[in-house]
């Protein structure tokens, strides 16, 4: 079974950050990049399935050089090879990454694509299912269990609101988005991290590789402005040293429970 896992390096703002001079984004000096929280669960799931049934795990990302961090983390966990589509995608278009991933799906023809449910920065929760729409694969989002069924089907548990699970059967090839907690992602030891550097990492230029992906009709939502939550926050802030603050909390609790 060939399983493709799209992964993402997500941007995490420092606790104190500043906006760019046009006020339309966080100044990149105040951003750190790390693997998306949901990705290790998708990678682990793919590794377990390939360990059981044979095949290969391909990890793919869309983005600049900084996006390779997520690929290296997945290779260190045990993925076989990696592909980076070398193009920066707009942060406000939930479909942009999917269009480029679609080109990779067309070339690699995976039996299964496992995506994280969402990324922890943009949190659109859209990439996997949009990709499925573009390549016309059956798809189910927010999957909390996957069991192999014979004859080209999987039985998956879709996690619903309130923790209820809907068991469904889906025909391969398919796209599933994987929910946190589905497994216990393995840690890569130092040796594995070193070995990852020797694994194939292909950088493709979407313009020249024939991997243009699905033609995008739209340009994505247009950003008008951004604002900080603290300008609108409703909370009355309690200030002071730990003891004062705790005393005030004790008072508020006593009052509210009276």
């Amino acid at each position: 079974m060939r399983i493709m896992v799209p992964v993402k390096s997500v941007a995490v703002p420092d606790e104190e950050f500043e906006l760019t001079s046009d006020g339309l984004d966080i100044d990149p000096d105040f951003l750190d990049f790390t693997s998306n929280e949901w990705d290790p669960f998708a990678v682990e799931q793919a590794l377990q399935m390939v360990e059981a049934a044979g095949g290969e795990v391909i990890v793919v990302t869309v983005g600049g050089k900084e996006a390779e961090e997520a690929l290296m983390a997945a290779l260190a966990m045990g993925a076989d090879r990696a592909i980076r589509v070398d193009i920066a995608v707009a942060g406000f278009d939930p479909l942009a990454a999917a269009r480029h991933l679609a080109g990779v799906v067309a070339r690699e023809a995976p039996d299964l694509v496992l995506c994280g449910v969402q990324s922890s920065d943009a949190a659109h929760g859209a990439t996997g299912v949009a990709l499925a729409g573009l390549v016309d694969y059956p798809h189910i989002a927010v999957v909390k269990s996957i069991a192999s069924d014979p004859a080209g089907y999987l039985t998956v548990g879709r996690e619903l609101e309130g923790g209820v699970v809907q068991q469904m059967e889906i025909r391969l090839p398919a796209v599933l988005t994987v929910q946190s907690g589905i497994n216990d992602p393995r840690y890569a030891n130092l040796r594995a991290i070193k070995q990852a550097r020797g694994k194939p990492l292909e950088v493709v230029d979407p313009a020249s590789s024939g991997l243009e992906g699905a033609a995008g009709r739209g340009s994505g939502p247009r950003l008008r402005q951004i604002y900080e939550l603290k300008d609108r926050a409703s909370a009355e802030m309690i200030r002071g040293g730990p003891r004062e603050v705790a005393e005030r909390i004790n008072e508020i609790i006593a009052e509210a429970l009276r």
């Binding site: 999917a98 949190a123 929760g125 859209a126 949009a130 990709l131 499925a132 729409g133 879709r158």
Partner: peptide
């Protein structure tokens, strides 16, 4: 919602519509 997450992005992609979520 969980249901919409399974449907809305694929529809937007197939129909060539803009999407924004949450």
């Amino acid at each position: 919602t969980v249901d919409a997450m399974s449907v809305a992005p694929a529809l937007a992609a197939k129909l060539g519509r803009e999407l924004t979520t949450d």
